[in-house]
Amino acid sequence: MIGTFFWRRLHSLSGIIPIGVFLAEHMFINSLALKGKSSFNQGVALLHSIPYLFAVELVVIFLPLLFHAFYGLWLVYLTKNNVLPYTYFRNWLFYLQRVTALITLLFVGWHVWVLRFSSGLTAGNAFSVVAHALHSPAVMVLYIIGLLATFGHFTNGLWSFLVTWGITVGERAQRVAAYVCIVVFLVFTVVGLNALGAFI
């Protein structure tokens, strides 16, 4: 029987595989911009050369993303946050997970709409299209906020994933995992913002 248990676990999993993996891959390709315009464009070209591209995108990216987003909205709705009376660290992270979820959803929606569907981005013009999109300082600021929210949501989700699937059980394991996730967050932040800077 497929019930809440299945969907919740799938939701937890989908945030890591494939979405988290894709996020890492995305940051890797972005970082090619540090090596110059043509490197980045070559990277994009490589991606565009994937056979059955649309089907792959649909199954590996869009469907998981849509599921994760909309089921996640339902979960946000189900929550009654209480960080004011109960100011525990984990409670704050639990709350921020929901706040970053909403920010990430808006950011990713906007980002995908602009750069994937309406900009006419091709392997040839990729760098300049992105650079053009990031031209305004306001957009840049929104991108920084969006990226930080995305990385925070992903890394905290990674910690939560480890608990939810029963991988980190003991208090110590959970604490160590938290440190690891902080490191992952920092790595993503450095890599992500660095790549962003390469387009200026």
Partner: peptide, 27 residues
């Protein structure tokens, strides 16, 4: 599966029951 790992329970429990450890084990 409806647990969201806020982990307030273990802080609030007056009997110091390791609730989050139980939850993780049963996860």
């Amino acid at each position: 599966a409806e647990c969201g790992n806020a982990q307030n329970c273990v802080k609030a429990c007056p009997k110091n029951i390791p609730l989050t450890r139980s939850i993780a084990r049963l996860n």
